[in-house]
Design a protein around this nucleic acid. Structure first.
Length: 496
RNA sequence: GGUUCCGUGGCCGAGUGGCUAGGCAGAGCUCUGCAAAAGCUUCUACAGCAGUUCGAAUCUGCUCGGGACCUCCA
């Protein structure tokens, strides 16, 4: 078995994963800015890193998973106005900033729950760590790498770059940045265009504001992650994750801040997921092509022919490697929905398979089963290749169904092999990939009724009373419940 | 313009130089009162050109096309 390897954006290579403290992993993932409703694009990193988290747990690591909530509203510079996203939205929606933040945090958590994402160990908020951020800024000023202008504080990138490799993570050359940086508001305050804000002075109408040694203002965007990751995971931790679009300037700046304050690279491994595209273009607000999660779950979007369940979306995302772009379309989601159903049906079937000590063992098939199981582990160890792991699971699906259809003779595998395959399959589908049966609740309620109907159908078929049997099946089908006659004479059912 | 990634069959997507990726869709067959499901068989591939090699989707070069980042962004 190969050890776990992860692609480190910083070195641009796959590296064997070795935690700082054996058996323990500290992981920080950039969380959402809760100034609006999450869309499909936002779902990807949180599902990606949920699987990373789950797999590390699966491997036996004790993991502290920190994912922040950005509720302080880092300023965005749209046109000429420097704006605070949350402030601005709060005014539009006539809400207190914290009321707005609460609303979208709740929505975010609701979506995470539906995706069956595990909760992070700690979910710190930027507004809850203003003191830590101010302290960190003071340290950077004391070290001589930041300066104050008119109540704002900027990080001196040029000075930093003289000693440290600013731009290494994102593959940027500092002189190029000088050339290409666009004219922005208050640019004249900065010594150099590449400098970024640690603290911004708040104008009187700005509603999110805190006192600081430099006057009333609010923190810059990058400092929150540096402050919170260091507080909960230490000066240096194992994994830092986030979307590829955060590589620059966000993560690059995080590194710079932490290097000055803590004299260490904050994270050993930088993991970045790629974007979700739609018609080949990145899904994002600025492109006006987002599909909100609520629209996805209800099917209320022009591009969607139907509603798609959270598990379908999760499966859809996991069918692609996290570092590849994933192109969205209605057809692709429809394919995912059917694929997931096939996977889950086989999983249910597997649970009913059992060995028969009277039959001769089929060593060849056993070996095949063991090989697929091993390949699942190998795939995940190769930079969390869920797409490949799923392909091997589908190979198992094919064989499981062969037992069912009689192509492979039933019960010819040893008890050990059956037990192992069952455990491995269950462990992957439920624990590692985090998929769950969405029918379960409904099934509980309807089970008794459906069992009865299945029984009546069975009886009427035995009497060749097809009028009755067809009536049962056809009317149930209209309700979205499929009744199937199995080979052994039983009648089974499932939801479409 | 700078940096960088990618172009795989009808669609989505894995791919370590030689071994079936996989899912969805299509065709035929088996099972079946009909159906569904499943199984078996099967059709479509590696953007183009040139090179390295016994052998390339996989390495190199060029051409064409597309994306991402360089500004908020998951």
């Amino acid at each position: 078995m190969n050890p776990l390897k992860v692609y480190n954006s910083y070195s641009r290579e796959k590296e064997v994963f070795t935690p700082i403290i054996a058996g323990h992993v500290g992981m920080y993932v950039c969380g959402p800015t809760v100034s609006g409703e999450s869309h499909l694009g936002h779902a990807r990193p949180f599902i990606t890193f949920d699987v990373v988290y789950r797999y590390l747990l699966h491997l036996g690591y004790k993991v502290r998973y920190v994912r922040n909530i950005t509720d302080a509203g880092h300023f965005e510079e749209e046109g000429r106005e420097a704006e605070d996203k949350i402030s601005k939205k709060a005014v539009i929606e006539k809400l207190e900033p914290m009321e707005l933040v609460q609303k979208y945090s709740n929505l975010f958590h609701w979506a995470m729950l539906r995706f069956n994402n595990l909760e992070p160990s700690i979910e710190p908020t930027a507004t809850g760590h203003i003191v830590e951020q101010i302290t960190m800024i003071e340290e950077i000023i004391a070290a001589g790498y930041a300066y104050e202008v008119n109540g704002s504080v900027y990080f001196d990138v040029k000075k930093y770059a003289e000693k440290y490799p600013y731009g290494k993570l994102s593959g940027r050359v500092i002189d190029d940045l000088l050339e290409t940086t666009r004219e922005l508001e208050n640019q004249d305050e900065k010594k150099n265009k590449q400098d970024f804000a640690l603290w911004k002075s708040a104008s009187p109408e700005h509603i999110m504001r805190w006192k600081s040694p430099w006057g009333v203002g609010f923190p810059g965007w990058h400092i929150e992650c540096s402050a919170m990751s260091a507080k909960y995971l230490g000066d240096q931790f194992d994994i830092h994750g986030g979307g590829m679009d955060l590589q620059f300037p966000h993560h690059e700046s995080e590194i710079a801040q932490s290097m000055i304050c803590n004299h260490k690279m904050p994270a050993r491994y930088w993991l970045h997921n790629n974007m979700i595209t739609i018609n080949g273009k990145k899904m994002g607000k600025s492109y006006n092509n987002v599909i909100k999660l609520s629209e996805l779950f209800t099917g209320s979007h022009a591009l969607l022919a139907q509603a798609y369940s959270p598990m379908t979306v999760r499966f859809f995302i996991l069918q692609t490697h996290y570092r590849s772009t994933l192109d969205f379309s209605n057809d692709a989601l429809q394919a995912a929905e059917k694929g997931l159903k096939r996977l889950w049906d086989a999983y249910k079937e597997l649970q009913h398979l059992a060995f028969d000590p009277l039959k001769e063992r089929d060593i060849q098939t056993e070996d095949l089963f063991y090989a697929y199981c091993r390949e699942m582990d190998e795939s995940m160890n190769d930079d969390f290749n869920t797409a490949k792991a799923l392909a091997h699971m589908f190979s198992l699906v094919n064989h499981i169904n062969s037992f069912k259809s009689g192509v492979l003779e039933k019960k010819t595998m040893s008890a050990e092999c059956f037990a192992y395959v069952k455990e491995q399959f269950a462990s992957y589908i439920e624990n590692v990939l985090g998929l769950k049966n969405e029918d379960e609740l409904e099934l509980d309620k309807l089970k008794g009724v459906l069992d009865l109907l299945a029984d009546i159908r069975k009886e009427s078929r035995a009497k060749k009373d097809y009028a009755t049997s067809d009536k049962i099946r056809n009317q149930l089908q209209q309700l979205g419940i499929l009744m199937k006659d199995e080979k052994d004479g039983k009648v089974s059912y499932g939801f479409e």
